[in-house]
Design a protein around this nucleic acid. Structure first.
Lengths: 123, 123
DNA sequence: CGGTATCCTATCCGATACTG
DNA sequence: CAGTATCGGATAGGATACCG
């Protein structure tokens, strides 16, 4: 979906907003990490599997902009920046954990469906 | 994230899979619609705000492949195809509704954060 | 350590036209 | 009605290099 379409429908559909926010590749994973506690930039980069520093920066800025994550620069050298969930971000916790638990519980079943579907399609 | 990266990490991170599945632009909205009951193709196209027929087709195929949605061709003319949640798809219901309810409840607060952040950045 | 800036390509996806 | 096929512009995001 391009930006024109997105803007056109964003007022009509409240779900569109939450998807643009947490539906991207990394926001959800980053927030799940921060739910374990505050974390620094490079520590996040190591623990969020596969994220580039560029995308981690972009993701954190967006989460900060939405008020879901806070950013605190600690006055020391070398510089240290700590990210943490805000109360608003914390209010997402149970919903995200529900999603994660579903994902973990049903991953094998879904993969089985995929393999069987792919086998049918190739036949 | 490109496919090479995605494949490399997909085994290490179970959340990656669920995001590739429901994190795209339309899957979640389509499933929320189907939770109200079975629905036909063009009816879905009308009610899922902003979706093109192409993307609706792609989305439904992926959901079908994952075993989350079933597709039944009714033997009549003109052709009629009914989509419905499978039991596996239904098992996602409470998690998705939790997400949707959070989205609806906190949308005003998030938009306020955005406006205030943008105002600071422009200053 | 915690980022930015630039470049460049793979991918997404809407538009359009066509089919059974 | 319920799709599929193809095209092309827009965009996401990795790679790389650099900075306070």
């Amino acid at each position: 979906m391009n930006m024109q379409t997105r803007r056109r429908i964003s007022y009509a559909c409240p779900m569109r907003d939450v998807l643009d926010r947490i539906g991207d590749a990394w926001s959800l994973l980053v927030m799940l990490e921060l739910m374990k506690g505050p974390c620094r930039f490079n520590a996040l980069a190591r623990v969020v599997d596969g994220v580039s520093r560029r995308m981690l920066t972009v993701t954190l800025r967006n989460l900060e902009r939405d008020g879901l994550v806070s950013r605190e620069v600690l006055p020391c050298s070398p510089p240290s920046v700590e990210y943490a969930l805000t109360p608003l971000g914390g209010s997402l916790q149970s919903a995200l954990e529900g999603l994660r638990d579903w994902a973990v519980a049903h991953q094998p079943e879904i993969n089985a469906h995929r393999r069987s579907y792919d086998a049918r399609e190739l036949a």
